[in-house]
Amino acid sequence: MLRLLRLERQDQWQFSGYSPTCGAQRVYGGQILGQSIMAMGQTVPEAHRLHSMQGYFLQPGDVHERIDFKVQPIREGRNFSTRLLLACQGERTIFSGAASFHRIEGEYRRLAPIPGVAPASEMISEAEYYTDELPLITGSNSHTPLLMSLFERRSEHWRSWINPGPREPVNGIWCRLREPCGDDPLLCQALLAYICDLDLMNTAMRPRGVGALDPSAHAASLDHAMWFHAPVQPDRWFYYDLSGPSAVNNRGLGCGSLFQDGLLVATAMQEGLLRERRSR
């Protein structure tokens, strides 16, 4: 996981990265987010810390091809640095992004408290809940087995991959990286972005009742935005509180708040696409 995010630097403004080959043919969106954060963050002054990023998923990425991350500086001030980025595979641009970095200043601090939820120890683990269904996706075109090996996740809101049925557009997951990751702020933020891509669109589309293994369904992330409010350690438990306020024209909007040590540390939003191909 850490090797995946530590990109190869080609010159001052260009980096290259790779994807794990684990059965899935398309590059996982969270990987692109995490790698983009690492590329942009390595071009700003050390005192400037990432506070927001956004991007658009333009085309599916191929896990068998190298990804080139091309960074462009558009602002370099004493307090703020802003970067644009294109992620390309050959002549294809698969992702465009932007990020803003801010020199730490001021002492006032106010962070929303975590909602009233049971601790991780009282919730069922992802691996335990999906014991019977996991063999159905092992070796298939799915990123889930890899993500489950990297992150431990617990929830009261798991639903069947095969036939989930309609559910309310709410979700909540305790999560932590299974192995230590150190305390590099940029790497910790990239890891948070990596895992946060997984559930936003799925939460927004829950009322449609379509399962992850439904052969008629086609899903894709369209865009993603994150705001980082306070330091976070992804190898310690954090809670991801999710909702889906809208779904229209096959697009669903997911909103997520991330809490650690009882306080809000980041906010994420994403719009995704879900099409259902129905036989005539």
Rank of each mutant, 00 (worst) to 15 (best):
Q270T: 04
L253R: 00
Q270Y: 04
G252Q: 04
Q270W: 05
V248R: 14
S246H: 14
D261K: 08
L264Y: 01
L258S: 02
G252P: 03
A266R: 08
G262T: 03
L258M: 11
G256Q: 08
D261L: 08
L264G: 09
Q270K: 07
D261E: 15
A268D: 05
L253F: 07
A247Y: 04
V265T: 12
A266E: 05
V248H: 14
G252L: 03
G254A: 09
L263P: 00
L258W: 02
G272V: 11
G244I: 00
E271K: 02
G254S: 09
T267I: 08
L263R: 15
G254T: 01
G244M: 06
G252I: 01
A266Y: 00
C255T: 12
L264I: 11
A268Q: 01
L263H: 10
L264K: 10
R251N: 12
N250T: 13
V265P: 08
P245C: 01
A268H: 07
D261N: 14
M269E: 13
G262Y: 05
G244V: 05
C255D: 12
D261M: 06
S246G: 12
S257N: 15
P245I: 01
A268R: 00
A268N: 05
L264N: 11
G254Y: 02
F259G: 02
P245D: 00
L273N: 04
E271C: 10
A268T: 13
A266T: 08
Q260E: 00
G252H: 04
L258E: 04
M269L: 13
E271W: 09
T267M: 06
G272M: 12
G256F: 09
G256L: 04
G254Q: 06
L253K: 02
A268I: 10
C255A: 14
T267L: 05
G256D: 07
M269N: 08
A268F: 06
G244Y: 07
